[in-house]
Write a protein that binds this DNA or RNA. Structure first.
Lengths: 197, 197
DNA sequence: TAGAATCTGGAGCGATCGCTCAGGTTTTTT
DNA sequence: AAAAAACCTGAGCGATCGCTCCAGATTCTA
């Protein structure tokens, strides 16, 4: 039994491990497909196996429990978003535009994917061993908000608004285009239309 | 088979219906307990029945399917929050304080309840027949934000931040006290520390 | 090429699942 | 008191669940 995620390095010389590595990828992809289509509750050993075109026992072989499968899926999705944030432009204005596009896509072509992220996120809130992933996500958001304000309260406000915007875009039908989202983001980060009380 | 939610009016003269009405209440309370403890995925006919101290068939009798049970639970939770918002003070400053307390409680003593709300909320995003409940929640938030701004963009920004604050309080350990939340809320709605660009 | 490591997948155990159903009890109506 | 209406439930069917087991196939190491 290997069971270790094994260093996910590029080329693995050992053909045996390479095959296992490939199957892990297929399984996680299958998990995401299932969550996107039917939600986390639909993730079962047999369903995932069928989706991946593998026998049920193969699922158990690579991920001892269904929980392990979900944890791995959460980490992968987190990686996806972290990478997306890391890829934002160094120019603040441009980065804001790109974020707006990212959020808008979460209500449109990436809707299922974004819902999956939030479902896994919520699940993580219930399991102490997954809390680290929540912290990882928050760090990414906080690092982003730090580009727009040095004040921690303002940072929290912006971060909360970003989280809320993601939530709104994929649960509501309005607020779907990137320009709309961008306009809202600008109000939060720049605030020029507000009176100083 | 009655199956109708039957007008939930105060006193029901018919003793038969009154008993059924009481049992619906107990079942929904049981559903909330289960969700708060183990999540929506744990809501099964038998588990709910046991939690309510009723036979499994009683669950089916009052709610034809488990889905019906979850839908009813979502409506009830929505009612709870809508009532909470309706009970906020007429004074804007005081209302903001009360909202901060409400959000902070969502990360503390009401954590499980708030998580349940969001889990049901997410589930609703996947089922077209529950979309109406999402709209109902959004309307409540929007009505609240309207007290602080007439601008729809600002309104969306505030609403998103409120949603995000709820999310943050019950997934993170920091940001737990009402004063902290209030400070953030004030930045969003009043914004006086921000430079006009 | 022998032996070790890794991978494969069919069979299946015990438990739980959603839901049905046939007949029971309680309450109201006549 | 009889009939009607509403309420209630134990038993259980067929399906799926998580997970185990283990003999065989494949691939690397020595």
């Amino acid at each position: 039994m290997p069971m270790q995620p094994e260093s996910d390095e590029a080329h693995i010389s050992d053909g045996r491990r390479r095959k296992g590595h490939e199957r892990r990828r297929r399984l996680l992809a299958a998990v995401m497909s299932v969550i996107e289509r039917d939600g986390v509750a639909a993730v079962t050993q047999r369903v995932v196996a069928k989706e991946a075109g593998l026998p049920p026992s193969a699922v158990t072989y690579y991920y001892a429990t269904v929980d392990d499968l979900l944890t791995a899926a959460l980490i992968q999705v987190n990686d996806w978003y972290i990478d997306a944030f890391a890829s934002l432009s160094a120019d603040d204005d441009r980065a804001m535009e790109q974020l707006a596009e990212l959020i808008a896509a979460g209500g449109d072509r990436n809707r299922a994917h974004t819902m999956a992220e939030y479902e896994l996120f919520l699940m993580a809130g219930r399991r102490p061993d997954m809390r680290a992933e929540i912290a990882r996500w928050n760090q990414v958001i906080d690092a982003f908000t730090a580009r727009f304000t040095a004040d921690p309260l303002d940072g929290t406000a912006i971060a909360a608004a970003i989280d809320g915007l993601f939530l709104r875009t994929f649960t509501t039908d309005g607020l779907s285009t990137a320009p709309e989202v961008l306009a809202v983001l600008k109000r939060i980060t720049r605030r020029h239309p507000f009176a100083p009380e």
